[in-house]
Amino acid sequence: MTTEHEEASLLSALLDGELEGPERVRLQKHLSFCSTCAIELESLRKVKMVLAKAPKKSMPMEWIQAFPQALTAERNSQKNSSRASVFSQNWLIPALVAAAVSFAVSFWIFQSQSSFPLRHSLSLNSVSTPVSPLNPSSSQTQDNTP
């Protein structure tokens, strides 16, 4: 048995349940007679508790609902620049428009209980927090039907 303190970060490891075997036994033994380390462990526990109990934020659901559409828009804009020939197909544009319209309608129905406006414009550059109270003016509704 030694009166020397253990490596301090072992206290955090013990607290996190990440200390096993002889290291754990040795530290627990040390803690049974070293009040300095016992107090330190207690204060680390309090910090951990404060963080664990801190409120959490959820991701904005309406954006996740519209994520596939955002990806399609992103993909199309990339294709538009690199593979413009895809858009020479006559069927593709009406098909995309029809898909976008049906998606928008079903999404609108799905979201109709919510008070959030439907957001279409979700490309990387144009999106800002739609529900953020810090940024209420940003949630402009854009319609992607031409």
Partner: peptide, 13 residues
Amino acid sequence: VRSRVHQARLLLK
């Protein structure tokens, strides 16, 4: 990881 978590807690305290 252990050291970062521990140092962070000391600083937070």
